[in-house]
Design a protein around this nucleic acid. Structure first.
Length: 539
DNA sequence: AACCTCGACAACCGCTGTAAG
DNA sequence: GCTTACAGCGGTTGTCGAGGT
């Protein structure tokens, strides 16, 4: 049942308002107020629809409105808030005194959207291509962190693959890389900063990214963490790191995009980056993790308490003599992510022999999985025999480190499996996100509903599979915890901005609860073992 | 000078939520 | 509980002027 029209369309004037009409409306409202919009045009002697009068008043005539150009500060606020709440113009406008939602919307559509696009940033997701790649480079850093990221990334691999293989300059204005900027030794001299028109050689960028990944793979896997880190700023002369540095706009004093230590991305538009910016020499994305969305985390140190280095790894263990087992367990079950990219994943159609080599586990404590992941990514993208040959060399090195797999029984565990709540949680997120997207076409639903829902569903299902086969789901639970934490943060932020209990408050509470639940499962030692395995006495 | 294109802004449209009768 | 009107929202369309051809 539709609503009756608010006025007769034939008898009302439409189109631009004349100064006389404005005067009539203004003087009437000044005298009598805005109590009944249906009566206002009639009483004010206007041939206008009441709704039209209301819009004219709220969007133009109101005395508290600010007319004229948006300031840089206002633009910053709009972009910040848009990255959090999406196209909710009224929410954004509420933070800008004197601006209407229509103003904000128009300004976004005519100016800011283009501005961001010109900087190589997708105005919808507020992520950039180089961001994505830089995150991959960072992900290849500390092995355990990479493990976690790998699990999370598994859910986004299609998107990444698409980005790596399908994007073209016409689709996505990637940051420029001058032709003389070889990726190895790309020190940044003469480098084009972010935010300039994509040059014809943008296709090269894709190739260089692939090459960068390959080089990351080829970097000496046995080197101790911290000593040889191609991703570390100090050594940013190789592979992705070179490109990574190339894209650091802070180093060039150009139009810059960066994240501050707040809770939302901060874009600095048009302002020259201050010399000696904290980000200089490091990733411009170093303040924000693609997977967690968390910010304020400096690039280099990762909290050891969260993801301890192998060797003194005791996450999920009770300490003491259980540590050794847990180390094995963590290195084994935890490292065994083959469910993600191995036999359970048909997307990464590498030759079996190559895959098997890469899925082997290192006794030295250096995880090979990130390399395996990147190798697959690179191989899939490049689809070149030469690349496979490179990887074969790498896999030969890995062979030497291969150890025999066997199931280690757990000594202590949680009372409930992660997937018991995780799968329903993921399903709820996914379905709510899907519904939200169907009904509102909101990208927020995609980013904060469908994607994490699918990721959680996938991880929960894999965890169930691992549990059935007696393997450790530790990293899968960790990844789910990371997703929950990210969602809790994002939803809470949206809630504090909008003050709406539904949906943001509800989702924030739910995500926080799930985060606590995952933390409990992790701290309690992981999932309880299957009965058939629990019956086996520990060796 | 005429025409075209494009950007910026204003206005409209259709819908939902909510409050009053 | 139903109807009606208002308020608000986000997407879309219309208008106008500047600049280019």
């Amino acid at each position: 049942m539709g609503r009756i029209p608010c006025c007769e369309k034939d008898s009302v004037k439409r189109g631009q308002w004349t100064p006389e009409e404005d005067n009539k409306l203004l003087s009437y409202i000044t005298q009598y107020g805005t109590r009944n919009w249906r009566l206002i045009p009639k009483n004010a002697g206007l041939q206008r629809c009441g709704k039209s009068c209301r819009l004219r008043w709220t969007n133009y005539l109101r005395p508290d409105l600010k007319h004229g150009e948006f300031t840089d500060d206002e633009e910053q606020i709009i972009i910040k808030l848009h990255s959090v709440v999406g196209n909710r113009w009224s929410v954004i406008a509420a933070q800008l005194p004197g601006r209407t939602d229509n103003d904000v919307k128009n300004h976004w559509n005519t100016k800011l959207k283009k501005k961001l696009s010109g900087m190589g940033i997708d105005p919808v997701t507020h992520k950039s291509f180089s961001h994505l790649m830089a995150e991959i480079a960072t992900t290849l850093a500390p092995p355990q962190v990479a493990h976690l990221a790998e699990a999370a990334l598994g859910c986004f691999k299609d998107e990444m693959l698409h980005l790596l293989t399908k994007k073209r300059p016409t689709d996505f204005p990637s940051p420029a890389v001058p032709p003389d900027m070889a990726i190895a030794g790309g020190s940044g001299a003469g480098a084009a900063p972010c935010g300039f028109p994509a040059p014809p050689q943008t296709d090269d960028t894709i190739e260089r990214i692939k090459l960068g990944l390959s080089r990351a793979i080829m970097s000496e896997p046995g080197a101790p963490p911290g000593k040889q880190q191609p991703w570390a700023p100090a050594d940013m002369t190789e592979g992705l790191a070179g490109m990574y540095a190339t894209y650091n706009p802070a180093a060039h004093g150009q139009e810059e995009f960066r994240y501050d230590n707040g809770t939302v991305p901060e874009y600095v538009l048009g302002g020259g980056a201050g010399a000696g910016d904290a980000d200089q020499g490091t990733s411009m994305w170093s303040h924000q993790s693609m997977y967690s969305g968390s910010s304020g985390t400096e690039a280099a140190p990762r909290p050891a308490a969260v993801l301890p280095e192998k060797g003194n790894d005791s996450v999920g263990s009770g300490g003491g003599d259980e540590e050794a087992d847990d180390v094995k367990d963590g290195g084994k079950g935890g490292s065994d992510m083959s469910g993600l990219f191995g036999s359970d994943c048909v997307l990464w159609d590498l030759p079996d022999e190559l895959t098997n080599h890469m899925l082997s586990i290192s006794t030295s404590g250096v995880c090979m999985k990130p390399f395996a992941f990147a190798a697959k990514l690179s191989t899939k993208c490049a689809n070149e025999n030469a690349r496979v040959e490179e990887l074969d060399l790498q896999s030969d090195q890995m062979k030497e480190l291969q150890v025999e797999e066997h199931v280690i029984p757990q000594k202590r565990s949680a009372k409930i499996h992660d997937f018991c709540l995780g799968i329903p949680f993921g399903g709820l997120l996914f379905s709510m996100g899907l519904l939200g997207y169907i009904f509102s076409r909101s990208t927020i639903s995609l980013v904060l509903g469908i994607a994490p829902g699918l990721a959680t569903l996938l991880l929960g299902t894999l965890s169930l599979k691992f549990w059935r086969s007696g393997r450790s789901s530790f990293l899968l639970i960790l990844a789910q915890a990371a997703i929950s934490a990210f969602l809790a943060w994002k939803y809470s932020h949206a809630y504090f901005l909008t003050n709406r209990l539904l949906p943001w408050g509800f989702y924030a509470s739910l995500s926080t609860a799930m985060g606590c639940f995952y933390a409990y499962v992790l701290l309690a030692g992981g999932n309880p073992p299957p009965k058939k395995l629990a019956a086996i006495p520990p060796q």
